[in-house]
Every structure is written in structure tokens, then in C-alpha cells.
Amino acid sequence: MNMVLHELKAYRKSTILWTCALVAMVVLLLSMFPTFARDADQFKSLLQTMPEAVLKAVGVQIETITSILGFYAYVFMYISLCGAIQAMNLGTSILSKELREKTADFLLTKPVTRTQIVTSKLLAALISLLITNVIYLAASTIMVLAVKNGDFEISKLMMISVTLFFIQLIFMALGFFVSVLVLKIKSVLPISLGTVFAFFIIGMLGATTGDGAIRYFTPFKYFDPAYIMQHASYEGPFLWLGLGIVMAAIVISYVVYRKRDIHAV
């Protein structure tokens, strides 16, 4: 437990910053909705003049964008991008930080198993993400209620918002996996930004070409807001795929880390 608390303290600043960033983003973007909704027809006709591929790539769906949920779904694409960066950063830092700051010796010469170390660190990262998500969920819900122009199903809003946590879990696990596989990570940001944007762009390409198979290759498309709005449920195969990726990345990380030689630096 002492390690979990220590790690939580270490991530405290970055968790607060990222949470603020996410909240600020959702507040800012949603505050544009009233103006947008007032001139909805004009906007729609403006959007129709744009090439369809572009609209799809940036995640605009003309039929729904003037409803509050549709608008939120559009905004959420960028929220999830931001959230993914936070999670990937966190996941990648967890273990690589010890090697970079050369504190691995400190921890590993204490009477704890490596499994305990990894578990504590994962738990701390998980708690950080949970805190972020609870605050984000509250802020986004309040904001949507404040700017809404008509009735909507609040359960669907929640279902969309919660996918932020799912996406973050996947990216955290990926980051963790990378930090265990790559021996020495000098700087976390290029790795996490690179990976996250690569997946994001894959998602944009997939949306443009309309190629359904591409969805499997980017976590950003596992939880489609349009589908959630229609069916009030998640898509089973993608939910399992996401879960599978998280489990696999974490299990492999444990196995590799337990056997790894920790060299002096």
C-alpha cells in the first residue's frame, strides 16, 4: 500500500493537470453549442458544401450534429484523443520512470517482489485514471445539461462518456507494454504522442474510406458514439477486443518484468 500511495503522490500533479485540461476542453467546446444550435440550418447547409470525406474524417455526422448528443459525440472524439495521450503517458512512465531517474535500485532492493511493485504501480495509475474520469463525467454531464436545447437520454450520454475510461485503459496498458519492452526510454512524450496520433490517424482514414475492418486496428473506433446513440449498448466484439488487448498487454508486461535484469546505469 505504501508504494501505491507513493506513486499516487508522484502522479498527483499530472493527474490534476490532465483532468483540468479535459474539463476545460469539454466546457469550451460545449459552450459553443447554443450558438451552433441557433443557426443549425445554416450550419448544416454550410457543412453540406464540404467534401464528405473531410466530414467523416473529422467525425461530423450532419444528421445528428445539431442535437446535443450528436454534438457531444463529435466533441468527444477530441476529448478521447486528449485522454488517450494522458493514459499512454501514464502507462509508459510507470516503469520507465524508475530506470530513467535511476531509482529502480531503491525499490528493487526493498523486501518486495517485482509482482508487488508492478501491481502497486498499475493500481496507482488506475486510480489516477478513475479520478480523472469521475471528475470528467461530472463536468461533462453538468455542461451538457446546461447547454441542451431539447430532451435527450442521459443514460446514453453516460455511456458515451464512460468510453473515455475504456479508451484510456487500453492506451495505459499499451504504454505499460511499451515501457517494459523498450529497455531504456529517454523521453516518454514522443513515444506516447506518436502512438496515440498514429492510432488517431488510422481512425480518421478508416472513417474516410468507410473500411469497416480498419476499425479493429484503432482503439479510438472501438466505441462508436453513433452506435451507442442508436442502440443504447456497446458493440460486443469491440468490447471484448479492448478487454483482450488490456489483459494481454498487462500479463505480458508482468512476465517480462519479472525476468528482466535491472542494470546499473
Partner: peptide, 20 residues
């Protein structure tokens, strides 16, 4: 028995780096 015996070991590394 690593974790068990480390309870009774004190270690001072040649280069000391701690959480800054």
C-alpha cells in the same frame, strides 16, 4: 527467497539517485 532476505539487508549503491 529475495523479498524475504531483503528484509535484513541494507544496500548502499555506488551512485545514489533518489526521487528528486
Amino acid at each position: 527467497y529475495g523479498p524475504e532476505i531483503k528484509k535484513e539487508i541494507g544496500y548502499l549503491p555506488s551512485e545514489v539517485f533518489y526521487y528528486d
